[in-house]
């Protein structure tokens, strides 16, 4: 218990056990799959047409933004060269994965994804969706992996407030709620501020939106604020997610 909690010594054994119970989990997730399949099957064609139209518009906007992003990236790299500093852009390999199932018990919050070690997935890779950070991969089987959500109490994410750059630690408290720790009561912070990953510890990539501040309490006599936050990503509604690793290139589903 202690070894598994504080070290990764038993991670291979856990992966073996996860692979053993994977068929059970697949069967257990069947009712949800059938429900989603039926729901999808009965979606009205007008809704599909509207969604298609919306996605096409979104695609166009994203392509335009991507062009702008490439231009900015080149400009930043050029300025970095002039200043003689290292580039802040770290290329990442992206793998698109589908969510097989998710769990939101009081003990653990995680999602099961359909990519495993055969697809080159490894432990500690970050998982994001279109909006922000979802979590971190904690166990893998040959054909699937398990990502603990950022709302899981076991996960701590080093973050910074996007507006001020103030650093803190984002801690999961379950039920789609987070708390932001170690923000001094002298700091400038307000409700609605966006928290992004700071990249410290080099587990989570830098600059990914993670949460927004929802509540701030000043504790009398305490040096830090008591801050609640809500995740930006659709933790339990996303069907497609991206698994990040620090290499170049893009792999598709």
């Amino acid at each position: 218990m202690v070894s598994d909690h504080y070290t990764n010594a038993l991670s291979n054994f856990r992966n073996l056990l996860t692979a053993t119970i994977e068929p059970v989990e697949r069967i257990a997730a069947l009712p949800l799959d059938i429900y989603l399949w039926i729901q999808q099957d009965y979606t009205h064609s007008n809704q599909l047409s509207a969604e298609n139209h919306r996605l096409k518009t979104e695609n166009l906007l994203l392509k335009a933004q991507q062009q702008q992003m490439k231009k900015l990236q080149l400009e930043v790299e050029r300025l970095n060269k002039l200043l003689g500093t290292a580039s802040q852009f770290k290329s990442t390999e992206v793998q698109i994965a589908s969510v097989i199932a998710y769990s939101q018990t009081p003990f653990a919050q995680y999602v099961i994804l359909n990519k495993g070690s055969l697809d080159g997935i490894s432990i500690n890779q970050s998982v994001i969706d279109a909006k922000g950070l979802i979590g971190q991969i904690t166990s893998i089987t040959p054909t699937s992996c398990r990502a603990q959500l950022i709302t899981d109490p076991e996960i701590q994410v080093p973050v910074r407030i996007q507006r001020t750059g103030q650093r803190g630690i984002l801690n999961g408290i379950g039920h789609e709620q987070l708390s932001l720790l170690f923000i001094p009561s002298s700091s400038s912070i307000k409700i609605g501020d966006t928290l992004e990953t700071s990249g410290l510890g080099e587990v989570f990539p830098e600059g990914r939106p993670a949460a927004t501040i929802s509540q701030i309490e000043t504790m009398s006599g305490e040096p830090y604020y008591k801050i609640s936050a809500e995740p930006i990503a659709d933790l339990t509604r996303s069907q497609k997610v991206l698994i990040l690793s620090r290499k170049s290139g893009v792999k598709h589903d």
Binding site: L17, T18, F107, D152, E154
Partner: peptide, 16 residues
């Protein structure tokens, strides 16, 4: 152990 694996809890805790 099966429950520890399924629920992502430290191995041996549910066993205990």
């Amino acid at each position: 152990l099966a429950f520890d694996t399924a629920l992502n809890t430290p191995l041996g805790s549910h066993s205990l």
